[in-house]
Amino acid sequence: MNTTNLVEILLIEDNPNDVELTLRALRKNNLANNIHVVNDGAEALDYFFATGKYHDRDISLTPKLVILDLKLPKIDGIEILRIIKNDARTKSIPVVVLTSSKEESDIIASYKMGANSFIVKPVDFDKFIVTVRELGMYWLLLNEPPR
């Protein structure tokens, strides 16, 4: 994954199967050809704030959209949400929360922390597209169809 170019979607997800399903579906719908994947909460924070292995990343180049799994190793999804929504550098990035449960407390907590939308796995792409449209992001993310 090219980290120097503008990342359009940052996918924060630890389960490789879910990563694969999400990437495939995004590509299939011609959404975003520059997707960066991180596998745990600590790596996600390093990415956002250009620390650790991302220390030479240009911090001003924020992703257009974040897809965030709630159940993450090391640092929990809700905690990631709290941190980025409380930091001036990252708080304007739209976040779509991805989770395997419809656990009400998770949903409420996510919205409280400033999540823009919520999608339950397995990702329903019709719903995903509706979501990004509602966020006014659809045309921004839609790629030219490959020739």
């Binding site: 389960n15 199967n17 879910d18 399903l21 159940k71 395997s100 449960s101 796995k121 397995p122």
Partner: peptide
């Protein structure tokens, strides 16, 4: 969560 994770993969 533990049941959904493999289930999601199977369905997906």
């Amino acid at each position: 969560h533990e049941i959904r994770t493999p289930m999601n993969a199977i369905v997906g």
